[in-house]
Every structure is written in C-alpha cells, then in structure tokens.
Simulated scan of single mutants.
Amino acid sequence: MIVGDPPRDEQPSGMLPPDHPFLVSTARLRPQPAAVAILQLDDGRYLLQHRDAIPQIFFPDHWGLFGGAMEEGETEIDGLLRELHEELALVIPASLPRYFSRIDFDFTYCGLGKISRAFYEVTLPTKQLSELRLGEGRAIGAFSAQALLAMPRITPYDAFALWQHINRSRIG
C-alpha cells in the first residue's frame, strides 16, 4: 500500500491544512546567526514558545525554543539574554546559560554562507514560571520530555537539539 496525501477532510491529527502559512508562504526569509535557550524547569519540564502563525518567520505556528537572531556586534550570550528578556521578561545573569551544542546551516547556495544556531542550557526554578510574561509568540508551554518528543509541530532544528539534550546520557 502506498500512502499519499489524504483527502482534505481526512487530515490525520497533527497534519497542517493545505492553506497553512508554513506551506503556502512566499515571504522572503533571511537566516541569521542565532542563540537559543533550552529552558528546563527544575521539575524536568522544558519551556517552549508557540510561534506566531505569520508567514514572515521560519516555521510559523510551530513550537520552538526561546531566543533568536543576534544583532550586529552581539555575542551569543548577549543576544540570548536580550532575546529572553524580550520574549519572556526573563532577566538572568550572563553566567547562568551553559553552552550545549550548535547546528551549522550551509546557505552558500543563496550567497549567505554558513550560519550557526547555538543552543544554551538554562535551568529555572518551577516557581519562576508564574513570573514569565510572553512578549513574542502565541503561548508558553511547559512539557515533559516524553510529551515534547511526541509533538507534531516543533521546529526541526530545535527538535533535534532537544532530543540530544533529553538523550545526552545515552550519547557517546
């Protein structure tokens, strides 16, 4: 049996409708170096951002890590701290984020060269969750590792970094 596109009225759970911004957008996208946080609560859950459903961003209406593009002249840590403040009203010391991993993307085909996404671990006390204020995106979610890995719409690069983080004791 060959599985193909299901009829529109029979979309399996988690599948995007054919008119979803992720599938139909023609907006120009400009990849930039980024620093993001693998935010883990002290109870083990991970914090994710439900991204806006607008066509001008990478992976609209997906869940992803907090953080983002660095501004000209910023270090990864400076950019990460700025983004966490903008997106969550979270202020943490520069010594708190711990480097975890990096994914390099090769955009040479369109003249942009190689661009990195750096991942930093940040552990927060669960009680701090009530102090966070969403400044960008549609929602904040706190997910167990098992629930997170089963989610159908997570930005793929963040999903891989989260999988690595969850399984770090098994790797190597």
Rank of each mutant, 00 (worst) to 15 (best):
M1R: 07
I2T: 11
V3A: 08
V3R: 09
G4D: 10
D5M: 10
D5V: 12
R8H: 09
D9P: 01
Q11T: 08
Q11V: 08
L16Q: 00
P17D: 02
D19A: 06
P21S: 05
L23V: 11
L23R: 12
L23T: 12
V24T: 15
V24L: 13
S25W: 01
S25M: 07
T26H: 13
A27R: 11
L29T: 05
R30H: 13
P31A: 10
P31F: 12
A35H: 02
A35Y: 00
V36C: 07
V36G: 02
V36P: 02
V36S: 06
A37I: 06
D42N: 11
L48W: 00
Q49G: 05
Q49L: 14
Q49P: 04
R51F: 08
A53E: 10
P55D: 14
F58T: 04
F58R: 14
F59H: 11
H62T: 08
L65V: 07
L65E: 06
L65D: 06
F66R: 00
F66T: 01
G68K: 01
G68C: 04
M70E: 09
E74F: 00
I77R: 05
I77P: 00
I77Q: 03
D78A: 15
G79L: 04
G79Q: 00
H85S: 14
E86L: 14
A89R: 14
P93T: 11
P93D: 15
A94W: 04
A94L: 07
L96Q: 10
P97K: 02
Y99I: 04
F100R: 03
I103M: 13
I103E: 12
D104T: 14
F105W: 10
D106T: 07
D106E: 09
D106C: 11
D106Y: 03
F107P: 01
T108P: 05
L112E: 08
L112Q: 06
G113Q: 03
G113D: 10
K114G: 11
K114L: 15
S116M: 07
A118T: 13
F119Y: 12
T123S: 12
T123R: 14
T126M: 08
T126R: 07
Q128I: 04
L129T: 09
L129R: 02
S130D: 09
E131I: 01
E131C: 06
L134E: 01
G135M: 15
G137F: 03
G141Y: 01
A142T: 01
A142W: 00
A142D: 05
F143D: 08
A147W: 07
L148G: 00
L148S: 00
A150D: 12
M151Q: 10
Y157G: 04
A159P: 01
F160K: 13
F160W: 14
A161S: 00
A161W: 00
W163T: 09
H165C: 09
I166F: 05
I166E: 05
N167H: 11
N167C: 12
R168N: 06
R170E: 08
G172C: 06
